[in-house]
């Protein structure tokens, strides 16, 4: 049909063909499919809520994080329940539970996003080197990545925390290092697949420099799966932040609200006050679910096999 319009000459419609193949069209149709997918909408809603809470934490939270209230009424056997000033009651150190949860979102987002960004950046550099240049560079880089992959991420986190001290930065780096191999392999694979395509041969035939071919042709076409992976990795990162602080490898500053440490504090009161563990656990689970739902929907929307 499109060819007929060419034969007829001018004024071929410029509206994109709904079945258009190719990435420009791919992003368009991905967006359309995303909007029609209930899981994507649910995921996006959770992510949006999480972002809003994290960004506007000082406006939402009733108090200051990490500040134990005087005369809190916390006894070794019980914590005060909900009251007008404290909708969810207090937690074991005597701080407002809702405030801790709200500021905990902020901490999770910060560490999750920064570590994923670091992991993505590191993985992208290695992936571009390996997938774009190929040859011996590819071999060397991928062996390094294999070595990284063989180290358990928790062990890596312990080592990084031991070297850098228990600071948020060491948590970020620990999580990021564990993510680098994932992104590097994904981007390399994606670029290798693109490298054999006709348009790459065509730009080579036009004498475009290799660097330009890699950076402005191969890379943009290979980013789809990487973006999906970044969304999914954010969910993992948020869980890992909690896990690391649960193990005592996180931020050692007690005034920082953190969902993982809230779980640790709630542990001793699990039998008497289970809600202290349920709330942060619920937050971790829902946030991770939100990112996963959205990431999976994005993956489906971008998957050429799923397109009709």
């Amino acid at each position: 049909m499109t060819q007929v319009s060419d034969a007829l000459g001018p004024a071929a419609p410029t509206t994109p063909d709904p079945d258009a193949v190719g990435s420009g069209g791919l992003w368009h149709s991905a967006w359309r499919r995303l909007r029609r997918n209930p899981a994507a909408i649910a995921g996006a809603a959770i992510v949006a809520l999480f972002l809003l809470v994290a960004v506007f934490a000082p406006l939402i939270a009733p108090g200051q994080p990490g500040v134990p209230l005087p005369n809190s009424g916390v006894t070794p056997s019980s914590v005060p329940g909900p009251s007008p000033g404290h909708p969810l009651g207090l937690d074991s150190p005597g701080t407002d539970l809702l405030t801790q949860l709200v500021y905990g979102a902020r901490q999770s987002l910060l560490i999750g996003v920064v570590s994923t960004a670091l992991g993505l950046a590191g993985g992208a550099v290695l992936g571009v080197l390996a997938g774009g240049l190929g040859g011996w560079v590819d071999v060397v880089v991928m062996r390094v990545v294999d070595i990284l992959l063989s180290i358990p991420s928790l062990l890596l986190a312990v080592s990084v925390a031991a070297v850098l001290g228990q600071r948020p930065v060491s948590v970020m780096i620990a999580i990021a290092v564990a993510q680098v191999p994932i992104f590097a392999r994904l981007l390399r694979g994606s670029m290798l697949a693109q490298r054999g395509s006709d348009y790459v041969l065509a730009v080579h035939s036009l004498g475009v420099r290799r660097r330009t071919v890699v950076m402005s042709h191969l890379l943009p076409n290979s980013l789809g799966p990487v973006i999906v992976q970044a969304t999914l990795t954010l969910a993992t990162a948020i869980i890992e932040v909690a896990a690391l602080s649960y193990l005592g490898l996180g931020d050692s500053n007690p005034s920082t609200a953190e969902w993982g440490r809230m779980l640790v504090n709630a542990q001793s009161r699990l039998s008497t006050d289970p809600h202290l563990a349920l709330w942060p656990g619920f937050c971790i689970a829902v946030t991770a679910l939100g990112f996963t739902l959205f990431g999976e929907a994005l993956r489906e929307a971008l998957d050429p096999k799923g397109r009709k």
Partner: peptide
């Protein structure tokens, strides 16, 4: 390449970069 010798390929559907 491109300046003195250039090439036109068989399949125009795949020979242009879709995202540029």
């Amino acid at each position: 390449r491109g300046r003195e010798v250039a090439m036109v390929f068989q399949d125009p559907m795949t020979s242009l970069n879709p995202v540029v």
